[in-house]
Nucleic acid binder design. Structure first.
Lengths: 128, 128
DNA sequence: CTGAATCCGTTTCGATACTG
DNA sequence: CAGTATCGAAACGGATTCAG
């Protein structure tokens, strides 16, 4: 799984369309791509309190497998949402933390949280 | 692709975990699942001004194929974000519109839009 | 016009084993 | 401890054909 640069910028679904079809979606699409990975929002959420080591993340996301966690972290790093700080020691030690952009993203997740809470509530009350 | 009921409620990635690992993620996960489908946010966005016919949606999302559009619409309908109104005429006529829950979701997308705009800006300025 | 059904390639994700 | 490498299953999504 080679990742060289931003993973979310390849192309927006709409912005390659003819002018009359273009809608202001690119920015929403970019944001969507950030969180399409199954575990990315969990990773960001776990890092909101401060930096964590690889193994801490792994412990807190029990059903993720190691290689995929690495992959998701790498994508988030290349996309500029988190910092990776590797200490040159044995055994290895790597700490991940949110960048400013990652911190800002928490705001998006809070809105998602609100909407989702209400959705779940309505669902339980049989309104959906 | 059979869809019987809510597509996003199967289970949250985290809430089946032991208590000490459970984090308040379910509501965020639910919201994420709404928009994981490649075209769902575009569909919702296109419907924000009012109801549209199937063919209008198809015209406005040129690169989607018909059967997949049907599928995405069905999921959004079952998940309670949009209404499907079928007229019993020939040729067939079906109109889609947002439910209240779908309208509320626009708010989430606006926050995503803001974050994404800033992200794109920072990217263009070489800050990412 | 609005689907349904089928086929099929791609991407995502999980399991496992190995490395410095 | 924090990765790589490899394999395979499952989900996603596109193309095509058919139907009322």
């Amino acid at each position: 799984m080679p990742i060289k640069k931003q993973t979310i910028f390849d192309e927006c679904s709409m912005c390659s369309q003819p002018e009359e079809m273009k809608i202001q979606m690119c920015s929403v699409c970019v944001t969507q791509k950030i969180i399409r990975g199954k575990w990315k929002i969990v990773i960001i959420w776990l890092l909101r309190d401060g930096e964590k080591r690889f193994s801490e993340l792994q412990r807190n996301i029990p059903r993720i497998n190691q290689s995929y966690l690495t992959h998701q972290l790498k994508e988030l790093e290349y996309d500029g949402l988190l910092n990776r700080k590797a200490y040159n020691v044995i055994p290895p030690k790597v700490e991940y933390s949110l960048t400013q952009k990652g911190i800002d993203f928490i705001g998006v997740m809070e809105v998602m949280d609100n909407w989702g809470k209400q959705y779940i509530l309505d669902f339980k009350n049989g309104n959906i």
